[in-house]
Design a protein around this nucleic acid. Structure first.
Lengths: 198, 198, 198, 198
DNA sequence: AATGAATGAGATTTCATTCAT
DNA sequence: TATGAATGAAATCTCATTCAT
């Protein structure tokens, strides 16, 4: 009757799962992980609350999946950007690429992006090891970039690179998530970091 | 029986109210406004949940009181610091004082401080006009400081001062709330802002 | 492709049905009729819950089938044992054969056996007429055996035979289902009933 | 306004708790532990389901409390009966007192009594340590009584006393819970145990 | 000023059942 | 024959709130 689906096409289940993740990301972006109810997610995904359990073990697993995907995708964007540079590239160049990649991630991932904010006040991470590990990886990558820039003399050397990293990422997140124009934010941050002259 | 309380001493009710605010601040800092339950706050304040209603109209009023107090105190610390400068003081000097005041607020207010993070994703602000207004005032003060520094040529001029403000406050918040040493954070931020040479 | 199945061989459907009955019996034995969920039965039978409906009309029908099969098989074992006696046989002899048959049923039927316990508290029977009728038949057979033994003077005469029957069956069930060695239980019961001297 | 309550009067909470235990006992007696829903218990106790949680931590805790109380009361009745005998009393005398006490417990405790049935199929005991321990105590008391009777030559000696105990208790439970007249059941059991000539 | 007790609304979760494939 | 996907009803549990004491 109906033509066969093309190979590799996402199954119905895959599509529903995606709808659920998107819906959850939207809710989390608006109400935070703790304020996100399954009912609201299900409604947004046009599903009954009980049906969610066919795709995820629990509300917490669904939320963790969203958070983890947010960081994982951010990491992918970051790594792609840095490795796209003509090797070998200097530390400042890599740092500038990273800044732009992070802002691009916030822009492209929209609802999924807020996770990288990692605000210390939702203890979510405690109960969500997969997310926590992904976040650690992402932060470690940044620490390295910052550290290299310090060694290259672009950033002040006497400071714990993690302090600098939090300063940079915290700033980008706040500005990006507040909806400031990305170009504006990027230019300002690059200026503060002394990267403007490319 | 008991000796009369000294004039101006906080009444028992005042003291309970304070305990509740502190308990709520601690819970909010750990679980976020949406994850904070009355029962948890009451337990921490060594009270029964029902008793909270003798002191606050509702859970939301209690939470709003905490958030508002956090911003109000931060504003007080900021204003005190800036007006303590020998007038007339230059824009960079004022900005440096503000940076240090903000970090001091995070340090002193501890649990109350996280509110200034104002992460865009808890819609808390929407339902809490008193808090929202206080936050606006605080942000406006910072916008002015940034704008003045731009006019003085210390900060890049072509950028929306609010983007810069979010960059700075977001960075300070992330670093401060992550528990980085304040001196470290202050030095790093001042270096980025080109304020180190006093 | 595949060689034709031998006549009378159970079809694939028959085998699945059997797996389901066994799985349900095991669950019922462990959790009781009310605590038995379709999902658990299906899992044990290595099937998906929905597939059960190809073999049974509903969860209740499946459970009733298990209960009914348990009593029906017990009845068969009882009748076989009694009719295997050299006719005409005396009442005590028949009673002893019945005791041993009942214990053998508990042993052989394992998970299916618990049904004869007929504990008054699972109202299961109410909604399961087929099971209820089978159970009545089984109990009636026992009442007759007891009554005959009373007439023969082996058991006290002034008592309602159903009281004695419950005493005997209840005892055998408790001991048998608790996993006491059948020989032990049989000897003890026969001793109490004054049947030892064969 | 209202006269003060007499000292030692049960508080409102005590009375509600009692109502809940009674309601749960009634439900358990009819549907078994696994078939007993909180909603049904609450309805029977004329309470809203949520209110149950003011008195018990969970459905399981409520059910365990009922089971435990059933065994504890049975034990009390048993111990009272045995220790009321003129000391020193012979083993058969004590056994007869125990039989009657057990039947009296079934009668008096009505809904609470079914617990001593300990049918192996509600794994309840596994998750309910308090109940399990109480049950063990009760069974141990009976094992001792049986063992003494064996030593005194009233009961067959070659058998594990626990087999005999299960035979006796299982029989009494089945008959008692089936609603047979207690006098009938008692007389029949005593006759089987050779205790009639007391 | 605070507690004990209860409610009602809603949250998460479970589960028997259906149906297209 | 069996699975994947979904539903709707009910179950357990949480929680803000109320009110008598």
């Amino acid at each position: 009757m109906s033509s066969p689906p093309p190979a590799n096409a996402p199954s119905k289940g895959d599509r529903t799962r995606r709808r659920l993740l998107d819906a959850a990301a939207a809710e989390i972006a608006r109400r935070g992980p703790d304020g996100t109810s399954l009912a609201a997610v299900a409604r947004r995904a046009e599903l009954k609350a009980g049906s969610v359990y066919f795709h995820f073990d629990s509300r917490d697993h669904l939320i963790e999946a969203v958070l983890e995907e947010g960081v994982r995708e951010s990491l992918r964007i970051l790594d792609d950007a840095v490795s796209a540079l003509a090797a070998p590239s200097a530390a400042p160049e890599r740092l500038r690429a990273a800044v732009r990649a992070h802002l691009r991630a916030i822009e492209e991932l929209s609802d999924y992006a807020m996770v990288v904010l990692a605000p210390p006040f939702h203890t979510a991470g405690d109960r969500m090891p997969v997310y926590r590990d992904a976040l650690r990886t992402y932060l470690a990558r940044w620490t390295e970039l910052i550290s290299d820039a310090q060694d290259a003399g672009v950033l002040p050397g006497g400071t714990d690179p993690r302090s600098l990293r939090d300063l940079v990422l915290g700033g980008l997140n706040a500005s990006g998530l507040a909806g400031r124009p990305v170009a504006d934010t990027a230019r300002a941050m690059e200026s503060l970091l002394g990267l403007d002259d490319g």
